[in-house]
Amino acid sequence: MWDYTDKVKEHFLNPKNVGELKDANAVGETGSLSCGDALKLFLKVNDSGRIVDATFMTFGCASAVASSSALTEIIKGMTLEDAEKITNDDISDFLGGLPKEKMHCSVMGQQALKKAIADYKGIQIMEKPGEVVCECFNITDLEIIEAIRDNGLESSDEVTNYLKAGGGCGNCLERIDEIIETAVAEN
């Protein structure tokens, strides 16, 4: 059994802001059925660029639901400018921490938020720049490098915990090790 904080349990059993937001003017989607978790984030942004409402729909484990609930609570009332600065750590901290194997749930929140903001601004996010490293979960080298840089990751296990990359068939684990080596050397 996972060692979830009381805050995670509370946001899983009684999640805030669940459901489709009918008058949303920004939507961000991430994850998929095959990955085992997915999040659809709905935002209502007013004319002065403030998030006046946020809701979510999530398929996934308890920490995925709790991370989604936490995300909506954090960003409600924020300006887009501030919301853009939200990281997966903010989501995890809000919940009193997540088991390390579940950090990818908070990353999913950050990604959905990024996509929703881009959607509002009418920016097309280039679908997956970079070269796909993990075919099971469709994760690119650039995403891996970004996660290593942002979170100070040092091993392929840690990369799997944050991005899932390498957690399926495991064929890309050597490639992930190489990316880590290069990224650490560049630092």
């Binding site: 996972w2 899983f12 059993l13 085992g36 996934g60 484990c61 799997t160």
Partner: peptide, 28 residues
């Protein structure tokens, strides 16, 4: 998703298990 089901059943005192990945730490 299985883990979510199990944790809700757990609240009702029901002990079952899942074929889902999220309970085991693996991802598939």
């Amino acid at each position: 998703e299985g883990e979510s089901i199990l944790l809700m059943l757990d609240r009702e005192g029901i002990c079952a298990s899942s074929g889902s990945a999220c309970t085991s730490g693996s991802l598939e």
